[in-house]
Design a binder for these strands. Structure first.
Lengths: 187, 187
DNA sequence: AAAAAATATCTAGCAACGACAGCTTTATGT
DNA sequence: ACATAAAGCTGTCGTTGCTAGATATTTTTT
């Protein structure tokens, strides 16, 4: 079974190559430029090969998004260490979320804006996604009533800020002050 | 000069026809289905005629968006009448915003999600857009410190809720409870 | 009233898109 | 060595946004 193992490994490598290339291209020129043709050319395979890995373009975006959820959950977790007091934890988590949205804006777009076909808040929700949401819930502290609801509204506010600043509907200046307002409102 | 007036009027009528048709088509099948060809066929003109009115597809979406801002500002204004107390005003305005996003989701998408080339928070920001934002600011009441910042965060939260519920990333149930959380956080 | 200029509109086409059917090459197991 | 199965490519379909060039219509000038 060593040969088929090798094949499978090579297939997995190509899968990764597709995702990383898609990511790089999107980062360089935006998701609109990530077409199946350009992607195929960049990985030195013909276009239909992509369809042997993914059902379509949306599924490629979705796969990138899942990687993004893993990284986001990780970053939120790390942001908590060394924070003194509940308010500080909340503040750090919010800052980490917004920083992720800013520094990985292309991946963020895949996760939360583009159509991916991913299921949220259900049985088949990817584990990474659930983990990221759990970090938000935990950041709100021990006050128990309506916890999930509060987390959803907090998440909405963070997402709104991220996406409205990104699309220049809210000016980039004043991010610090808005973070202060947000943390105060939720602590 | 009566003839040229008539011509100008007919041109304006066709402009309106394009916008209303685009709106109807988007409402029926989504913005992806609003292609220049289908739009042209529906108004019984050839495709290039659209380009004599608009620079491109994005500008058509932008024109629909501006109409949306007018309606949103109007709705927010109306929502205030008969509200007793500052908190009630805030609550009504938030509810009106979310209701607009829900009931006119296609127009909302044009206003806040799709690329339109509209300038926000600048000199050339459309009046309707400024008016809508002013309603949000007013809803926060007379407390003066960081008013614009607070309004931006409130708007972000509303937008986040609207868009995350719309894309089924937050469940539709519990809208009332989330509104409670939001209003409490900002009053 | 005829000729010239300007305006309005259409036909046809470009380059690029996502997706797929079917053929050809390559590798596998006997 | 040979049949078979898997993998990948060429070519194509139907669309997309957008535009150049041709044509018809109206307006202005002579």
């Amino acid at each position: 079974m060593s040969i088929s193992e090798r094949k499978e490994r090579q297939r997995a490598e190509r899968y990764e190559l597709i995702l990383s290339t898609a990511c790089e291209l999107a980062e360089a020129e935006g998701w609109d430029s990530v077409t199946t043709r350009r992607l195929a050319a960049l990985i030195d395979y013909s276009q239909p090969v992509l369809y042997s890995h993914f059902k379509g373009k949306a599924e490629i975006v979705g796969a990138v998004a899942i990687r993004g959820f893993e990284e986001l959950a990780e970053r939120l977790k790390i942001s908590k260490v060394g924070a003194a007091g509940q308010t500080n934890i909340l503040r750090n988590v919010c800052a980490a979320y917004l920083d992720f949205a800013r520094s990985r804006s292309v991946i963020y777009e895949a996760m939360f804006v583009l159509p991916t076909g991913l299921k949220f808040a259900s049985e088949e929700t990817p584990a990474a996604l659930q983990a990221a949401f759990a970090e938000l819930v935990a950041a709100l502290g021990p006050k128990r009533d309506m916890l999930a609801m509060k987390a959803e509204v907090l998440w909405s506010a963070l997402h709104g800020l991220a996406v409205l600043v990104q699309s220049e509907r809210i000016p980039a200046t004043g991010a610090e002050a808005r973070l202060n307002v947000l943390v105060k409102a939720f602590s």
